[in-house]
């Protein structure tokens, strides 16, 4: 529980709620999509979004215009990593994983990819095998259609980093698609 006091409430709670519903709630799908892809699990994703929305509501007074989607997705991502940080091993693994996967292009030929890539199941499985740091940029760019600038704001990195990470992520995804075309999904929704 944060020790800093919540934003002071005025007599305009109802107006505030209405503003929150109008400005933030439209991005509930975006929030869930990111949380779901980060956490692998539908139940965990709901917990992450629930907590993120509570935080967003609590700190809504500090949101002064701007892009509500970027603002909410930043909170969702923070919430996910805070909740996950209890699992140190998982964290460590993700970083190591990223280190040992530099920019290498050993994917299958483009012809193979064309056939594989249209299969949603294979794409999903390949995405879920990727480390979170790479998966999140793919999700933000390809699924959420964020610009590099928006991604940079959400993952709190420079645009140059976004560009190189996205390149790495796509090469990794392409390699995953080639290496495990038939593997059964490991992270089925319960």
């Amino acid at each position: 529980m944060p020790t800093d006091p919540p934003a002071p409430m005025t007599g305009q709670d109802t107006a505030r709620s209405a503003r929150f519903e109008q400005q933030v709630l439209p991005y509930l799908d975006a929030a869930y999509n990111l949380a779901r892809w980060l956490s692998h699990d539908a139940g965990d994703a709901q917990d992450v979004v629930q907590e993120a929305m509570l935080r967003a509501l609590r700190y809504f007074d500090s949101f002064h215009g701007g892009d509500a989607r970027v603002w909410l997705l930043t909170i969702v991502r923070h919430t996910y990593y805070t909740m996950r940080s209890k699992n140190r091993q998982d964290d460590l693994h993700a970083e190591l994983d990223e280190d040992i996967h530099p920019l290498v292009d050993e994917g299958p030929s483009p012809e193979t990819l064309t056939l594989l890539a249209v299969d949603v199941g294979a794409l999903r499985a390949a995405l879920e095998r990727m480390p979170p740091a790479l998966r999140e940029v793919i999700v933000l760019r390809e699924l959420e259609e964020c610009s590099y600038k928006e991604i940079a704001a959400i993952i709190e990195q420079r645009i140059g980093t976004v560009m190189s990470r996205l390149a790495r992520a796509r090469e990794r995804l392409r390699a995953e698609l080639g290496h495990h075309p038939k593997e059964v999904r490991r992270h089925d929704v319960r």
Binding site: L28, D29, A31, Y32, N33, R36, W37, A45, V49, G107, P110, L113, T114, A117, V118, V120, L123, R124, L127, I138, E142, L143, R170, L173, R174, L177
Partner: peptide, 18 residues
């Protein structure tokens, strides 16, 4: 190849709605 991948990832089945 990446253009194909880009298109494939735009399939609505991958987007997880709340």
């Amino acid at each position: 190849a990446y253009a194909t991948l880009h298109k494939a990832l735009a399939q609505p089945g991958l987007y997880e709605k709340a």
